[in-house]
Every structure is written in C-alpha cells, then in structure tokens.
Amino acid sequence: MTEEKQYASFMERIRAGEKIEATDWMPIEYRKLLIKLIHMHAVSEIMGAYPEKEWVPRAPSLRRKLAIMAKVQDEMGHGQLLLRVVEDLSAPLGRTREELVSDIYHGKVKFHNVFHMEARTWADAGVIGWLVDGAAIINQASLLETSYGPYARVLKRICAEESFHMQHGENIILALAMGTDAQRQSLQTALDYWWESLLFFFGPQEVTPAAKQMMHYQIRLKTNEELRQKFLDKYVPRIQSLGLTIPDLSLRYDDSQKKWRYQAPDWHKFSQIVTQNKGPKSEERMLLRKKAHEDQQWVREAMRNHNISISSAL
C-alpha cells in the first residue's frame, strides 16, 4: 500500500471512531503529536507530586497523612503508566525512558503551570487537591474519547483515581471552611493565590496550530476555552457556597452568550513560567528530579546488570 493510501485508510478509521493501537501504522505527525501531549501529561503527573510532597510530612492527622500519601502515590503511578505509553510511541524514534525523564530537567518537555507554583500552606495543599485536580479531571475526562487506544485506557483509570483526589481535596477544604477564623483565612488566601493559575491551566483561548492538528486526528476533541468554561460551570457555585470570595470582581455568567466572562490571567507571565521554567518553584523542583535521576543512576545500573529472580529472595 502506498503511504497515501495508508494515510487515507488511517483517517477513515479515525472518522469511524476506531481506536488506534501501538502497533498499528500511523502517520509520523500523529505519533509526534501523541508523544508531545502524553509526555507532557506524564511529566506533569510526576512534577505534580512535588508541591504536595512538601505537605505529606506535615499532614495534620493520621487520616490526612494516609490520604495524602496515597494521593501522591497515585500521581507517581499515573506518571509511570503514561511514561509507558510514551515509551512505546517513542521506541521507533530511538528514545528511551532515561531520556524521557532527563528531558524534564533539560527543559525539553513542559509541565503544567500549576506545578511551578508554591505550596505555602496546608490550605494550598487542599486547594491543589480540590481545584487543581478538579481542573485536571475536566481536562482528562475530555480526552477519554481520544483516538489513541492505549492512552484512552490509561486515562480511564486515571480519571477514576482523580475523582478520589478531588474528594480528598474537597474534604480538606470543607474542614478548613468550617474551622477556626485562622483556618478560613488561610483557605481564602490559598484561593486568591491559585485562582489565576487555575484559569491559565487550560491554556490560551486561541486554538493553536498544534491543537488544531490534535483535533483533526481526534487526539483531543475540545478546545481550551470549552474546558475552562466547564471548569467555571462546575466550580464557581461550589466555591461560592463555601462563603469564599473569588478574586475576580468582573466574573459573571453571560446569559445571552451562555458563557462565563472572566478577568483573563496574565497569559504572558504564565507562558514564561511554563516555557522558560520561570515559576517560583520551577528550578528547585527540577533540581530535585535531576538529583533523583542522575545521582542515583548507580542504583538503576545495579538493578539492570544483576537480575535475580524474586522467587529466590525469600
């Protein structure tokens, strides 16, 4: 079959709603777009563990300690599952896990703006669980219909786990909202700090050429703005019902347009944070990842060179 015919029949499958599998023929553009998207997703999960890592040792009750440990473990687990998907996609291009990880601190792969930000208080850790994970679910749920089968299957599990995270975050927030004055104040301060980042999380309003291509291949099906509107639909009433003030006086629902009007985040500032790794915590967290990876290469080497079977261990 000529490449042209292969491409035509590939697009036919996409249009018919079929899932593409790792071993199927696919256009190189499709492969590269998938790698870009899923690599960033994987790395965001892994880097997403760091803001909360800072609060795992400080969780204020045994129940919270167990919950936040389990939550951050899930994030690492998602990172691992997604990396496996990217590894398969990247294998024909000669890229390995080692590079996919070192790309993080070489600045070759981006991760979500929210994970460049500081987690300054326990309330921040709660808001991350509630609203950052809430935003992530909206994003990830919209990808469940993606045309790439392995990604769709991993997303199914991720979404199920993320919904627990959101409940975990919501539970922390409720305790603070119903707590002492100081607890309520720290919650409001956390919301003020995170709001702009949360709006930016969904990306620019305009549909970029890459996003357009992803929609062409049905890798993703919704625009950034559609997802941001969904987030506002879901969370504005919830935030307000807790008696919290959203730090945007212009925020309102426009009935005629059926959409939210909001004060746009500082696009320039946040895109600098994501593309140049210029957030308040970018450098520190990338250094942690670098140390974990490079300083412990000897451990991975020891494992590779001297395989022993587990059954002989006991």
Binding site: I46, K53, V72, M76, Q80, L288, A292, Q297, R300
Partner: peptide, 8 residues
Amino acid sequence: LGCCPDIE
C-alpha cells in the same frame, strides 16, 4: 516521595 531512583 518523588526522590526514588526510578518511578516504579
């Protein structure tokens, strides 16, 4: 957390 030699 986040500091082990590999993700697994």
